[in-house]
Design a protein around this nucleic acid. Structure first.
Length: 497
RNA sequence: GGUACCGUGGCCGAGUGGCUAGGCUGAGCUCUGCAAAAGCUCCUACAGCAGUUCGAAUCUGCUCGGUACCUCCA
């Protein structure tokens, strides 16, 4: 029982979240097609739903998070000869298809780890579930909603639309879909252009192929998600997530297939994240404007002024509500970089503080400001995961923390419980829910000791007014990317780059 | 062409009827051996037009501009 509200794309409304099985949440998120390298656009859904996963867990739900890997090919273009994306590239690169799949899967996992995304509970592959997909197709045929032509099987939209609401999720009018349906000269095997493939007959040169009741072929794109979601989450589950661009036809078709097979609508809450744009245009292969994740992290791309740490990208994404578009620019990313640094440093200072035995002398105004700001954190997350507002509130607390550290505000101005709550909530939000991490390069212990020595030397030099030495230490470390800052309390803090 | 969505200060972005987030940038001040950091303050916006309302960035209509989906797409 919570106050969590989720914007449901299906009803276009925010709805109070109530799971099918109390205490448990089943969530399915469309995963990557591993026929190529992931780009920046791909980062958004996986970070968005990672936070959803983290927050649901934080609320006490036991979450089963299923995210597939699409490793079986689709058609490059409908109407033309069936071409398997993966096998096509494989020929070009002279690689075994599964070798390619493995390579890009590994790369994807590497990027997810750098983003500090928690791994899904189950990460099923399409090729690992051919049997389930075939079984599902059989059921759809038996129910009379699919037909076979030349070894391919198509879902019959017009039949489905007779007694179901095809197009509701994506706001499509079924008659329009069917009208555009002019049958293209006999070539097309489909009865209606709106029909989609459940199984495709494989041309001889097609590398990825499986035996089926309809001959040798490969599954249509939409069926894999239906089959895997049903298998691991049941015929009806709580949340289905993915990018907005998947709403139609992918998710619409998923609903149709699953509904026929399982006699129930598959999903309670549909969630769709918006796109990342670059110069106002969606980042996508067809636009030729993608920045791959590897390029983003290395800075090796003409559009990038510098490399960006995965945490900066994560923070950048979380600064926007997930249903808004997010425009990429160097300026915006660098603003995020600075913001994150400030927030993280304040967070670290806070965690290092101890209330000690100081007698409390609470300042009512401060006390209530802090507790209200903290309480709002939950409200914002409960309002459709508004991480942008959460971050805004965390930032509002930064001056408070820094002032306490600088002793401009006495620690005792907060009550002991107020302070402990501040400390705890900051940790919970920064690390557990938002999944942020330290950006500064991990240093090894020995270097850390050397650094401590230099800091001591600088302190002594300063005490002796030997500013030549103290400045030399600071300047030369600075040239090496290590910044020393004299704190008001006499200490020296370190930050990197 | 059809269907949606969007247009917020120098930039990025919250915000769906009144109390005018937040980040970055810029300016000033304080602190400081200097620097950096930090703190404080300032620059106060909602594409245009018309309407509803006591009151609109927020609702309605129109205009202009942009984007997405309709095909693979996160």
């Amino acid at each position: 029982m919570t106050n969590l509200k989720i914007y449901n794309s299906y009803t276009r409304k925010k709805e109070v979240f109530s799971p099918i099985t109390p205490g448990h949440v089943g969530m399915y998120v469309c995963g990557p097609t591993v026929s190529g390298e992931s780009h920046m656009g791909h980062a958004r859904p996986y970070i968005t739903f990672d936070v959803v996963n983290r927050y649901l867990t934080h609320l006490g739900y036991k979450v089963r998070y299923v995210r597939n890997i699409t490793d079986a090919g689709h058609f490059e273009e409908e109407g033309r000869e069936a071409e398997d994306k993966i096998s096509k590239k494989a020929v070009l690169e002279k690689l075994e298809p599964m070798e390619l799949v493995q390579k890009y899967t590994n790369l994807f996992h590497w990027a997810m780890k750098r983003f500090n995304n928690i791994e899904p509970s189950i990460e099923p592959t399409a090729t690992g579930h051919i049997v389930e997909q075939i079984e599902m197709i059989k059921k759809i045929i038996a129910a009379g909603y699919a037909y076979e032509v030349n070894g391919s099987v198509y879902f019959d939209i017009s039949k489905y639309a007779e007694d179901h609401d095809y197009g509701k999720l994506s706001g499509r009018v079924i008659d329009d879909l069917l009208e555009t349906t002019r049958v293209l000269e006999g070539q097309d095997e489909k009865r209606n252009k709106a029909d989609f493939a459940l199984w495709k007959n494989a041309a001889p040169e097609h590398i990825m192929r499986w035996q089926s009741p309809w001959g040798v072929g490969f599954p249509g794109w939409h069926i894999e998600c239906s089959a895997m979601a049903t298998k691991y989450l049941g015929p009806e589950f709580d949340i289905h997530g993915g990018g907005m661009d998947l709403q139609f036809p992918h998710h619409e078709s998923e609903i149709a297939q699953s509904t026929i097979c399982n006699h129930t609508a598959p999903v309670r809450y549909w969630m769709h994240n918006n796109m990342i744009t670059i110069n106002g245009k969606k980042m996508g292969k067809s636009y030729n404007n993608v920045i791959k994740l590897t390029e983003l992290f290395s800075g090796d791309h003409p559009a990038l002024e510098k490399p960006y740490h995965p945490m900066v990208v994560r923070f950048f994404i979380l600064q926007t509500q997930y249903r808004s578009t997010l425009d990429f620019s160097n300026e915006a990313l660098q603003a995020a970089e600075k913001g994150l640094k400030r927030l993280w440093e304040a967070y670290e200072k806070l965690q290092a503080m101890e209330y000690g035995t100081t007698p409390e002398k609470p300042d009512e105004a401060l006390e209530s400001k802090v507790s209200r700001t903290l309480a709002e954190l939950d409200e914002f997350m409960n309002d459709d995961f508004n991480t942008a507002k959460v971050l805004a509130n965390l930032f509002e607390l930064v001056p408070v923390i820094n002032s306490i550290k600088d002793k401009t505000i006495p620690l005792a101005a907060l009550s002991r419980t107020g302070f402990e709550l501040l400390k705890k909530q900051f940790r919970v939000y920064m690390e557990d829910i938002l999944g942020l991490q330290d950006v500064s390069g991990a240093d090894n212990e020995k270097l850390e000791k050397v650094l401590q020595l230099l800091i001591e030397l600088r302190k002594e030099a300063k005490k002796n007014k030997d500013f030549f030495t103290s400045d030399k230490i600071r300047d030369q470390l600075s040239a090496a990317g290590i910044m020393l800052k004299d704190e008001k309390d006499g200490g020296i803090s370190v930050s990197y780059e």
